[in-house]
Each structure stands twice: as structure tokens, then as C-alpha cells.
């Protein structure tokens, strides 16, 4: 289990926990946009700035801070 923010480009993980999904934090918005427990996410771009992940058919750009709150299990 590792934070989503540590997945490399092209790596896939399954979300196992979203920490602090209190509705006002970024994590809760991420949940509304589909980054939920049980989802498989594909890291598209983990470069210098924000991260770009693909979940289902959406490409979602998230802050590194939010990405560190989401824990994933790699296959």
C-alpha cells in the first residue's frame, strides 16, 4: 500500500483508502469525481507539477498533496 502520488507513469493501482475525506478537503472532491475506494487508477503523468491520473474514462489532474492522501495497492 502506498500513496497515489508515488505511482510512476504508466503504473496502475487500486484505491484502498481515502484519508480525511471530510467534505471540505480536496479528497472529498476527488471522491465526487470518481477517485473512490475500489477504483483502479492509471498514472498518466507524474512529473514536476500536479499529477494526472485516469480513472474510468476521466483524466483527473490533482495536487500532489491530495494524491498523498489517497492510498493505493499496486497489482
Amino acid at each position: 500500500m502506498l500513496p497515489l502520488g508515488l505511482l510512476g507513469d504508466g503504473e496502475v493501482g487500486e484505491i484502498v483508502a481515502v484519508a480525511g475525506a471530510d467534505q471540505k478537503t480536496g479528497a472529498a472532491r476527488a471522491e465526487d469525481m470518481g477517485l473512490r475506494i475500489g477504483k483502479r487508477v492509471l498514472m498518466l503523468n507524474n512529473g514536476a507539477g500536479p499529477l494526472l491520473v485516469k480513472v474510468d474514462e476521466s483524466r483527473i489532474a490533482i495536487d500532489r498533496g491530495v494524491a498523498m492522501k489517497i492510498k493505493v495497492r499496486t497489482a
Binding site: R29, S58, I62
Partner: peptide, 10 residues
């Protein structure tokens, strides 16, 4: 700065 989350449409 608050968290950045945004969808990139196709």
C-alpha cells in the same frame, strides 16, 4: 493554496 483538482476533458 488550496487543493487543485480538475478534470481534463478529452
Amino acid at each position: 493554496a488550496p487543493a487543485f483538482i480538475m478534470e481534463l476533458p478529452p
